[in-house]
Amino acid sequence: MDLTRRETLGACGAAALLAMLPAPALARTTDDWIAEFTGGADMAEGGLDLTAPEIAENGNTVPIEVGAPGASEILVLATGNPTPGVVKFTFGPLAGSQRASTRIRLAGTQDVIAIAKLADGSFARASTTVKVTIGGCGG
């Protein structure tokens, strides 16, 4: 069945509206993530290392490292991703240090945030901007 452009646009518009309806109820924003992790407590700047490249070689696989001496948990958020949650590390009694490295996906240039829950129950925060480019003839 051949659709006219008008009909197609109309159908797409309606579908888009329908798709949008349930979304706000499910999407957790960066602020939601932070509020859930910290319970609304203040976050100090510093006491937490976050290492990520200034320019990502490729946004699909970006190496990062986080570390906070004495921390019980570290949460990492990608503020510009469709869903900001990235990873949460919980360190146990046999952790040799409160550091960890991993590789993450970044959808575009954005701030990556790390928040640590320190030994005394307070929170620390660090942030870094990672540039994500669209390549040339990457094939």
């Binding site: 990235v86 360190f91 590789r103 996906r105």
Partner: peptide
Amino acid sequence: MVVDVTLEPAIS
């Protein structure tokens, strides 16, 4: 426990 990691879809 050494480490317990919760992964979200942004892990490669």
